[in-house]
Each structure stands twice: as structure tokens, then as C-alpha cells.
Design a protein around this nucleic acid. Structure first.
Lengths: 198, 198
DNA sequence: GTGCGATGTATCGGTCCGATACATCGAGGC
DNA sequence: GCCTCGATGTATCGGACCGATACATCGCAC
């Protein structure tokens, strides 16, 4: 893909957890990835060969393609979990690419996230319990709302974990689930709804 | 307060919406505020005058105090709303200081936030409707979870707006609401909270 | 035929974070 | 009595990211 397209794809895929990637972040990142050899510039074939060089310094759209090494590195990245894997954005990114990794990784990350949210929940309960009379009604309402969100997310995660253990696809799209699937290293992958864009 | 204390206070007050302020942000900000004249260094009185100068370059805790101009600027800041007022963090900060501003401002901000969340909600519905078959089951589940959070927040905001219009304190701690309060410029401030564990 | 919004690449200044350094102090273990 | 460890406290530095902006092309509606 080229940058603009990539941005749109990611915005659709990650829209639930974060705003669009900024250009100030996108283009430098693409160059970094290229410098590392994880993507290569795959110059778009001009419609007719002779019509392109006319324009002065027009950059034109730059199409990138992931390399074998890049794929390898990507697989490593989504499978390995550091502390930032469990914060809101980090977890969202990992989760959005769950279909590309194996069940053990998915379970590990879901459980790590649950632990993190449980900690946040306890912190909020603490504040609501101990500091309640020091805080005004609006601040308290904010904490309550946050606490509610935590409890809700823990339940959501627990459902996902249970589904994962039972080998089923994520929760409950009441659609008829499609597709037997085979995979190289993972025992029981979830149904991929469709897929495969390089 | 001094920096460390301020950080703890803010962490408790804003814990529901964001992580602790980093030191790399806190101390430069304090200096910026001081340079602008909005806070002043109010050197902590040493326990006994002669015992302090002994230590070599020890900075000791630096206590700051807000100035009259700082208070004025703060009141302006929480009352004025830009685009960033309605994103997650910005809204949380405004909301956490709602008790310091007037009802008209509170309503304006609550409604702006609602509009923003409704837009996000529509975006997610769009993706779930149009791009559903292009995305894998996990990504879809992420969108669904995000959509659910949006719907929930809109309901929460609507409750708050209704309460605000009726002049009552924020939502529903089933406590007997306490406190007659007077205030300089605001028509009907909310009761300052009593304690409460749900 | 012209303006305007979508498409597309790119940079720059500023802000914030994470890691780290350094110093003091009280509590607890041995 | 000594020593380590965690909490308290101020501070900086490099790097990542955002928001604004610039500039160019293309298709379409009016």
C-alpha cells in the first residue's frame, strides 16, 4: 500500500481505540521501516511508460511492500508482550491483529490485559473508598464511570478468555460462522472472516 | 503544593481517565507556569532556621502557590472550550474541574462531548456495516466493544445533561445530598460530595 | 470553466513520555 | 547496630508523536 491508503486502513481497523495516525508520524515511520529493510519501495507501474517523467518534481504515490524479513519481525512484534502491551492503545493494536497470531499468545495477552484492568479497578475503588470526602461530586462521578468501564471490560475479557480456551471464535457474531481452517503452528485458530491483503 | 504532591493529587483526581503525569512533563510545566507568573515559589519554612544550609546542593522540596493572575487564567481555561476539550483526556480534565465553573459552561462541554462521541459511534457503525466482511472476527469484536462503550457514554452524558438542566447534583449517589453552598458567580453549584461506597 | 473537496507526500515546532540519575529518610530484617 | 529497600523528592535527556501547514493533482458539481 501507499501511505495515505495505509492510514485509512489503520483508521478503520483501529478506529475503536485511537484516532487516526498523524502524517508527522506515518511518513517518518515508513522511512524507518524501509531503512530497516522491513518494507521496500515497489514503484507503482505507470499506466503508460512514457507519460510519467513529464512532471517536474512530483513524487507521486509511493507503494510499499513488506519483505520476508518484515513479515518475520511483524510476527515477533505481535507475539511478544512488554508492559506497554497492556495499556489501552497497545492492547488494542495487539488485539486488532489477533487473527495473525496463535492461541497461546492471545491468551497470554488477554490475561495480561485483564490483570492490568483489575489493577486500575482496584485503584479506583480505593480512591472512591478512601478519598471520597475530599473530592467533589463531579470528580466522584468520573471515578464511578471509570470504575464501571473497568468492570465491564473485565467481564468482556473473561468472555473472550473463555471462548479462547474452548477454541471458539471471539464472542458472538450471531452469523453462521464459516470455514474450517488449517494453520502452521497454532492448534485451533478462530475463523478468519475473510482475508489476506499483503 | 510541591511537585510530587501535585502529581499524587492529580493522579487520584484523574486516575479514571489517564495515567500519572510524567516527571518529564511535570517539572518543565511548573517552570513554565512560574515564568508566566501564574504560580510563585513559596519556599517551605525550615523546621529550624540553622539546620538547613548544611547540605551541599540539596534542592529540597519546592512549594508553589497559585497567584491571583493564575487563578484568573485557570478559570478562563476551564471555561473555554476548543476542539481538544472533547477528546478523552481533554474532556476528563474539564469534567474533573466542573465544580469550579458555572452551569452554562458545564452544559456546553457536556453537549460538545456528546456530539463528539456520537460522531465516533456513527463512524464505528459505519465500519461495522460497510467493512464488516473485510475485517477478521477479532477486529470486528473490537469495534463492537468500542461501539458499546460509545452508546454507554452517550447515555451517561444524557443523564448528566438532564441533571444539569434540572439544577441537581451529578447523577445518582443515592445518599441524602448534603450541603447548602454559596458561590460567587455560579447560580446553582452542585453539592460537594459526601462519602459513599457502592 | 472554475472552485472545492478528496487524494497524496512531506516537514517542522513543540509537547509529552519513559528511563534514568541522584539524594534523603523511615521501617524492617538480621 | 548496621544495612537494605521502598517511599519521597527534584531534575534532565533522547526519542516518539501530534497538529498545523505546505504544496500538488484529480474528479465532479454547479
Amino acid at each position: 500500500m501507499h501511505g495515505y491508503e495505509l492510514r485509512k486502513e489503520l483508521t478503520a481497523k483501529l478506529g475503536a481505540i485511537r484516532a487516526a495516525i498523524s502524517y508527522g508520524s506515518l511518513y517518518p515511520t515508513l522511512r524507518r521501516l524501509q531503512a530497516a529493510g522491513w518494507i521496500v519501495e515497489a514503484a507503482e507501474t505507470p499506466a503508460t511508460a512514457e507519460e510519467v517523467p513529464a512532471l517536474t518534481s512530483r513524487r507521486g504515490r509511493v507503494v510499499y511492500k513488506i519483505t520476508a524479513e518484515g513479515k518475520e519481525r511483524f510476527a515477533e512484534l505481535i507475539a511478544q508482550a512488554g508492559p506497554e502491551t497492556y495499556d489501552d492503545t497497545g492492547f488494542g493494536v495487539h488485539f486488532a491483529f489477533f487473527a495473525r497470531t496463535d492461541q497461546a499468545t492471545r491468551l497470554r495477552i488477554l490475561e495480561g490485559r485483564r490483570r492490568k484492568i483489575e489493577e486500575r479497578r482496584e485503584g479506583l475503588r480505593d480512591v472512591l473508598g478512601r478519598a471520597a470526602e475530599r473530592l467533589d461530586a463531579y470528580t466522584l462521578e468520573l471515578q464511578r464511570h471509570g470504575l464501571d468501564a473497568c468492570e465491564r471490560e473485565v467481564r468482556w475479557l473473561e468472555e473472550l478468555i473463555a471462548n479462547e480456551r474452548s477454541g471458539r471464535a471471539p464472542t458472538v457474531p450471531p452469523t453462521g460462522t464459516a470455514g474450517g481452517r488449517r494453520e502452521d503452528n497454532s492448534p485451533s485458530p478462530p475463523g478468519e472472516s475473510r482475508e489476506e491483503r499483503p
